[in-house]
């Protein structure tokens, strides 16, 4: 996964490569599955980051998130809201976790709101630490921490769903089940092919969708949508 181009992908997205480098990278992308998949995920992360609103959550979660996302030797991440150009430079091994962290970050304000009335839900407990390098072991740890975040959001929804119409709860539950089925299928496929970039990224994306649906459900229930 680490070749000479992987750390240039964010520069590529930002249009900072010169013409010669860009052409060389594009030629490389046509033949390197890892870089192509990584680029796809990076674009998704950036798109999601750009869609975040500028307003900061009531408490600034960013220093801790940034500290967790930025290894001593790693690339930094522009502070949300402060960097108007919205450049997000990720080192490649952080991408899987970054997509989840961004989903969680967008929920930060909601979690703070929940915490004010529901002390058991804390934002920092839900922020997953990215693996310092992408290995099967680190992917496993990442999944474990993401599962913990999902569990907390599910518990919050179980507490809050009484505020919602029963028909809405039923729809939300049905669709969480749809996502869970997809996650289960992806997990079973990964067991057979644990090294598949596509399956790993597909699982990460489906987990992100579950987190975002749980976040939205909680926001609806607490009137913070």
């Amino acid at each position: 996964m680490n070749d000479q181009w992987t750390n240039r992908l964010s520069e590529y997205i930002d249009g900072e490569l010169d013409n010669e480098e860009r052409i060389a990278l594009e030629a490389h992308l046509a033949t390197c599955g890892s870089c192509y998949a990584t680029l796809a995920e990076l674009r998704q992360v950036v798109a999601r980051a750009q869609s975040l609103e500028d307003s900061s959550p009531p408490a600034d979660l960013w220093p801790e998130i940034r500290a967790r996302m930025t290894p001593a030797h790693g690339a930094g991440v522009g502070r949300r809201g402060a960097d108007r150009s919205r450049r997000f430079s990720f080192s490649v091994p952080q991408l899987l976790a970054a997509s989840i962290v961004l989903a969680l970050l967008s929920a930060g304000g909601m979690w703070i709101g929940l915490r004010s009335t529901k002390p058991t839900v804390t934002a920092d407990q839900n922020v997953t630490s990215p693996p310092s390098d992408y290995t099967l072991a680190s992917a496993g740890r990442w999944r474990t921490s993401t599962d913990a975040a999902v569990t907390e959001l599910e518990e919050a929804l179980a507490r809050n769903q009484g505020q919602l119409d029963t028909a809405t709860v039923r729809v939300l539950r049905q669709n969480l089940a749809v996502i869970d089925r997809a996650i289960g299928q992806a997990q079973r496929a990964l067991k057979r092919d644990p090294g598949s970039n596509y399956l790993n990224l597909h699982l990460a994306n489906t987990m992100r969708q579950k987190i975002e649906l749980l976040r939205r459900a909680n926001a609806l229930a607490t009137g913070q949508s």
């Binding site: 046509a30 192509y36 796809a40 496929a189 092919d193 970039n197 596509y198 597909h202």
Partner: peptide
Amino acid sequence: AGKHRFTFTLGRGGNTARLELETF
């Protein structure tokens, strides 16, 4: 480009668009 993935290019190259299509 992998067990579950392949790539292709169309056109003359240069500033190409990126197209990523996925279905499990």
